[in-house]
Design a protein around this nucleic acid. Sequence first.
DNA 1: TGTTTTTCTTAAACTAGTTTATTTTTTTCG
DNA 2: CGAAAAAAATAAACTAGTTTAAGAAAAACA
Lengths: 191, 191
Amino acid sequence: MEDFFVLYSYFEKIGKRELTDAEKEEISSVFRKETFKKKQRIFNAGEENTRHYYIEEGLLRMYIIDQSGKEFNLLFGKERQWLGDLGTPATTAYYLETVEKTTAFSISEESFSAIMSKYTELSSNIRRSYIFLQKRFVAILSKTAEENYEELLQNDPDLVQRLPQYHISSYLGVTPVFLSKIIAKKARKRD
Amino acid sequence: MEDFFVLYSYFEKIGKRELTDAEKEEISSVFRKETFKKKQRIFNAGEENTRHYYIEEGLLRMYIIDQSGKEFNLLFGKERQWLGDLGTPATTAYYLETVEKTTAFSISEESFSAIMSKYTELSSNIRRSYIFLQKRFVAILSKTAEENYEELLQNDPDLVQRLPQYHISSYLGVTPVFLSKIIAKKARKRD
DNA sequence: TGTTTTTCTTAAACTAGTTTATTTTTTTCG
DNA sequence: CGAAAAAAATAAACTAGTTTAAGAAAAACA
């Protein structure tokens, strides 16, 4: 069962100490290791009590589909990051899907809540997620699409490289056509 | 010191039990009751270690001022709600200001963290804030300003009534001129 | 490898929302 | 109460970003 090495490391990191065998046992009993292939759906809008995912390897996106059928990417998650709908167990409005082949450790909301009281760093993690989303929100609303693209390129160039352009445009709140224009303009400048 | 009645009630509600005198004593020692007049600044962007506010009475707004000097309202808080920058003690990017004359109980980040371990419902509160912000984010990005205005009117008519229109437009991510058009159009329809 | 599918680019007409400016209405307060 | 200040409405010219469509490039895969 040493498939759980990455997960144990995570808990050792946040707990700032080594785990006992009993603790490892406990962790491996509440998490489930799952593998998904590229573009595989993990959960759908309308489902209840969705799970939380700690990503070992790969890339996920959480998105909505609006009235008109358009997708909007709310968040991406890659290796060593959490992704899931914190609104669970309430019916989710989101879809979770892989962008790349992914392996992740999943946990139910019930166990997640329980384990949070033991590893209080998990709560800080929710707080950090909040801060991240708040920044992202403000940026998208107060800056132009061009500035937001530049910022993403600075903060997470790896993500930009791994995602198809239309997923990035959807994350930035613009159409693929418009992002393409931004990139073309940038290339034109750079001579 | 029975100015703290509203605050005690809040803790009794989230703790689902009555507080002992010692607990009341503890709470009143870490919170500070503050009153602010209309349009009074509570903290400024650039400040560190800002406090958290539980509002007894009144109305606050937290906002940024962007590069071009325009304000953007991120969140409002009214009686029986929390407001503050969860990113604290890091330097804040936000301004906190009253819209109405307000009385609130404020607490430092340090005490807030400490008290969270005792009243774990406070963490759930952060999680709820996250969910709220996430919904707001998705709505603003995927719906038109008109739809978002309608939704606000449904969800919190009281807020719409208490806020000047230009604060609402800024909350919805549009200019006051455009919100005015939306409202005019609505009135025209309604005959 | 060549064929099919997916992604990206470009162009042109369009629209949701902005900007600036002026006037009207509402609120504040001495 | 009346004057001054603040907020809202209206108009007109403008722009950031959309839509639709068609072709080019890149990636997938049999």
